[in-house]
């Protein structure tokens, strides 16, 4: 609240008062009142007007200044009503009451959506677990009925992957903390992903080369398994037609982190697309050439990494390779013992 702006705002009142003063002066002179009496009346009139203005300005200034600083400093602006004291002038009270009313209604609104989103998510989780049961039964039926159903098993694998995607998408979008950070073996996690994809990899005659995976990182094992699974699915989807797919996976340890590398010799990513691969629904050049792209895989992976506190980066040269790197910070704070 600035003095000058306050005066500008009140200019009409000043003009009106000036006119009233002038009119009074004309009347007083018309009635031939003594000059001294006129001066006394005029001074009284002026002094009262100025002091009233000053008093009003000062009491409002305190409140509005606090409001302005609070608004500037607050990271979450909607918390403003919580910080305001009840002012001692009428307009201020009106403003504060209105803000509090807005805040209350907004909170209710947000709570409503939060509840809806939580319920939806819970339903998704439940649905995923239920959908997995018939998939499991079908898998066993395929296996029990002999080798003729290999193809069906392959398609079941795809259904299962899509179901899993929904689950992790719901998890990555929600603020609830539903992961467990503990020491996870890179070897074991990668091994699980490899076994899951063995048939598909062998049909493609792909080669897996691993080294230095005998390390442990602080993360959620299931989430990491899902993330590596997504990287593996991408490598298989975007492999080069000219050469046989080779996936190299290794980890290295530095002072403060373990860096996990996942590199393939596939199509690569167009340089122009590279900055956007982690964005939602982005498919880019490879997406236009391949109809199975949803633009969700890497987006979900990035979100999960963010929530777990890992850093993820992608490097690529079109037609040559794609490499994804995940940094796991070494943080003793995580360790439970």
């Amino acid at each position: 609240m600035k003095g000058l702006d306050y005066i500008k705002d009140r200019i009409t009142a000043y003009v009106m008062r000036g006119i009233a003063g002038l009119t009074a002066l004309i009347f007083l002179s018309a009635f031939r009142v003594q000059a001294q009496a006129v001066i006394v009346v005029m001074v009284l009139f002026f002094v009262t007007a100025v002091s009233l203005e000053l008093w009003d300005y000062v009491r409002k200034r305190g409140f509005y200044r606090r409001l302005e600083t609070a608004l500037k400093e607050l990271d979450k602006k909607y918390l403003l009503p919580e910080l305001l004291e009840q002012p001692d002038f009428y307009e201020g009270k009106l403003l504060v009451d209105a803000l509090r009313e807005c805040d209350k209604s907004m909170t209710e609104h947000v709570a409503d959506y939060r509840r809806q989103s939580r319920e939806f998510r819970e339903y998704i989780e439940l649905w995923v677990h239920e959908a997995k049961i018939p998939v499991a039964s079908l898998r066993l039926m395929c296996h029990n009925s002999g080798s003729s159903s290999q193809k069906m098993a392959g398609q079941l694998g795809r259904i299962d992957d899509y179901i899993e995607n929904v689950l992790y998408y719901a998890r990555s979008e929600n603020a609830e903390k539903d992961y467990v950070i503990k020491e996870v073996s890179l070897q074991k996690t990668f091994g699980n992903v490899a076994v899951k994809n063995r048939e598909a990899l062998q049909v493609m005659d792909a080669e897996l080369a691993t080294s230095g995976l005998d390390r442990y990182v602080m993360t959620d094992g299931k989430w990491l398994e899902f993330m590596i699974g997504q990287l593996m699915a991408n490598s298989m989807k975007y492999c080069s037609r000219e050469r046989r797919l080779v996936i190299r996976v290794w980890a290295e340890q530095t002072d403060d982190r373990v860096v996990f590398h996942f590199r393939d010799n596939g199509k690569g990513i167009d340089a122009g697309d590279l900055p956007y691969v982690f964005e939602k629904s982005f498919t880019g050049r490879n997406g236009r050439e391949n109809h199975g792209s949803t633009g969700m895989g890497l987006y979900i992976v990035r979100n999960l990494c963010e929530r777990l506190g890992h850093r993820i980066e992608v490097f690529s040269e079109y037609g040559e390779y794609t490499e994804v790197r995940i940094d796991f910070w070494k943080n003793d704070f995580y360790k439970m013992d």
Binding site: I133, V135, A136, R139, D160, V180, V195, K222
Partner: peptide, 29 residues
């Protein structure tokens, strides 16, 4: 289990399970 949460695995193992397999499992495994 069809649940895919690490917590379940940790709990089960601490209660004395000998192994823990998530659905849909690979029959050979």
């Amino acid at each position: 289990t069809s649940r895919t949460e690490d917590l379940d695995e940790v709990l089960s193992m601490s209660y004395g399970a000998d192994d823990y397999i998530t659905k849909p499992y690979n029959p050979t495994i």
